[in-house]
Amino acid sequence: MENKKEMRTWLDDLNLKHPLVIAGPCSAETEEQVLKIAHELKNTDVSYFRAGIWKPRTRPGMFEGVGALGLKWLQKVKAETGMKICTEVANAAHVKLALEHDVDLLWIGARSTVSPFIMQEIADALEGTDKPVLIKNPVNPDLALWLGGIERIYKSGVKNIGAIHRGFSTYEKTKYRNNPEWQMAIEFQNKYPDIPLINDPSHITGKRDMIFDVSQTALDLNFDGLMIETHYDPDNAWSDASQQVTPESLIQIMKDLKIRKEGNTEEDYNKQLDNLRAQIDVVDNQIIELLGKRMKASDGIGALKKSKNVAVLQSKRWNEILGKMVIEGEAQGLSEEFVLRMFKAIHQESINHQEKILNG
């Protein structure tokens, strides 16, 4: 993609003194509900009011949105509060209706981004629009697929582009609804630093009490803003009740978040340092999780050896691992001494696990 810096223009034109905030209910349920939430968010740091009009659900029979009727409600939000409005589009018909109702910003959801066919259909319908278009990461952790979707929108002539990081599905059980895979967002920023990147802590966490921490991590990693689902009665919301916060809670979250300000050389240094340390914290947590998984595998080996009365230490296998890891480590710029010390410690912990099972 050429001239990527122009993609940041729409964000710069807002002249914000803080990160971008997009907030509103997961789903537009009634006109009264939409307007009540919007008025509670009026005169806050929220720049765009969001509401899902068409809701792609995992299974049929669930609430799938009020449809085009909700666009009239969003127009009332704009007229009564002066707030900019936005919604998700999932096909060409959605795009046409949203543009006809002068929706200020459109986003494309994770279930759409995963399909190049759908993305091309939406790109064709968006051709030439000056509205900002944000593309969520696909449900699966595939950076190329995410970038491919963005490129399709860009090639249709849309210049006001951004990306939304909403986490990724995983078959493994984690504390998140959608695993953030922060390293992928970091790689995205490194490849395209001039494309605004928005974090969606609501979909990442699936739990309102985790939204602040994920939001802070995102800001520490220099994300450009947040999309947070907000409802005046979240426990009784028609969709995704557990991940929505009240307007009062959102306002408090925005007050408590630490924003890294630009300034003199020393402040710039501290900002860069905080960013790098935040990246390290993310990777360190992943290392611990991976080591935990490795030890669970060792426990399985210990149980298998116990059932067959086999000794714990297998010297040939151990030497093969060490040799391979030294070579892999060198390719990553790691010294042989470090790799040997690290894997000897890991091996010892693995032996301890297996001996505990054998002698248990």
Results as ranks from 00 to 15, higher is better:
K5V: 14
E262V: 06
A241C: 13
L221N: 03
T217F: 01
A51I: 02
K306C: 04
L221D: 01
D130Y: 04
M62L: 13
T205R: 01
R57D: 01
M62Q: 11
T174R: 03
K306T: 07
L313A: 15
N140I: 04
E229F: 00
S249T: 15
G206M: 02
K293Y: 10
D299Y: 00
G52R: 01
E187H: 11
L290E: 15
D233N: 14
A123I: 06
A98T: 03
S239C: 13
T30I: 10
Y192D: 04
K5C: 03
N3P: 12
G302V: 02
N199C: 15
K96Y: 09
D240V: 11
K271Y: 07
D240T: 11
F223A: 01
K159L: 07
K155Y: 13
R260Q: 12
E229Y: 02
T81W: 04
A278T: 00
V310C: 00
Q314P: 07
M184W: 09
H101C: 05
G323Y: 07
I135H: 02
T9R: 11
Q314W: 05
N140V: 15
G360H: 13
T9D: 15
M7A: 13
I288V: 14
M62D: 09
T87I: 05
A237Y: 11
W73C: 11
R317A: 10
G128R: 04
R208E: 09
Q314N: 12
R294Q: 14
N222E: 09
F168L: 07
D274I: 08
R8G: 01
V46H: 00
P60G: 03
I164V: 11
K96I: 08
Q348R: 11
V46S: 10
N309Q: 10
K258H: 11
M227W: 15
E349C: 12
A218H: 03
E328G: 06
I135S: 00
N359F: 15
D124E: 13
M227P: 10
M342E: 14
V339A: 05
A297P: 10
K155S: 14
L16Y: 13
N236W: 08
R111A: 08
E2F: 04
V310E: 12
K306P: 02
L14E: 11
H353S: 12
D102V: 00
I22C: 01
N160T: 01
G263Y: 07
K255E: 12
D104L: 08
V77L: 06
V339F: 04
Y269A: 06
T113D: 04
S239G: 05
E121W: 00
L147Q: 13
R341V: 00
A68M: 08
T265G: 07
H165E: 02
R152K: 11
K324S: 10
L358W: 09
M254W: 03
D213C: 02
S112Q: 05
S242Y: 06
G157Y: 13
L304V: 06
A28R: 00
Y154N: 09
Q272P: 00
R166G: 13
Q348F: 12
N160H: 07
L14H: 05
